[in-house]
Amino acid sequence: MTTPQKPWKKSVGLRLLDGGFAVLGLTLSGLVVLTSPMAGPEAVGFVAIPVIAIINFLRVFREGATARMNALATTLIMSAFLFLITPWLSVMGTVVSRGRAAIYSGFFTHDMRITPPKSALDMGGIKHAIIGTVIMVLLASIISVPLGILSGVYVTEIRGRFTGLVRFITQAMSGVPSIVAGLFVYSTFVLFFESYSGIAGAISLAILMIPTVARTSEEVLKLVSEDLRFAGYALGSTQSRNVFKVVLPTVRSGLVTSAVLGVARVAGETAPLLMTAQYFIASKTNPFDGPIASLPTYIFNMFQTGNRNSVDRAWGAALVLLGLVFVLFTFARVVTSARRRR
């Protein structure tokens, strides 16, 4: 197999030239935008893409049709990429810059029990939301991680009569809209007990988590080589011993990753929690005691309240939530790469 290695990369000078022409294109587009009714940086972007494409097209004009197509395609592909990552960077940038305003020393240690949403930003906080999220995500994990991993073990180790069915259902359920899970728990649990509750929220999250955990743990368990399994049996080990002492320990970090990814997925779920746990202004730790707050529903509520300070609070909580997802992701990645290195 020959993977083309490329010493014939573009030289620094050529790259600078490319950059120079891109800047030229941007400047031209800026001038066009200034002299037209259009306005704003995004208009410059819209105009710049065709302008730079045309410039690069003309630069290689004499080299023939394929060179021209190549220049055009390269420019368009790069612009499309930049065009696409702009909103993501904008989301992350906005969350950080606007969220900072709401965060003060007491943001994590106060709740909204005595603070109306519109009051100044040096009062109140998200303690209740963090507690609620932790409780519900923890409960959801306690339910779903064992069930998900057992499903994975069933599909890869026991391979019993229901293997196909289990695999099909987990596959199918992993794409279920979260609102459907919320609606299910609402119409059974919440209506039956006539109360929103943390446990209802946890169950709806668990429903969303099981397929994620089951699928990723199946993927991980599939990577265990058959030799390792047979080696265990050849030494006279029972299947249960083999699974617990050989198979599961080999993929421990992979299973941790699957659980963490499951948590990352549900920690930001809003719709099902709106229907099951709702929102509450004070901190509480009892998941059976009526509505309970969480970070996503806090954001949702502060947004709906709609005045300047409450919206700032929403951004502040968004920053905390995004940070949480980021930490979980980095953690999963570190665990995975540690396993690869081993």
Binding site: T2, P4, K6, P7, W8
Partner: peptide
């Protein structure tokens, strides 16, 4: 062959 074709340096 691959060197002459420019697939490896």
């Amino acid at each position: 062959i691959h060197t002459i074709a420019g697939l490896i340096p």
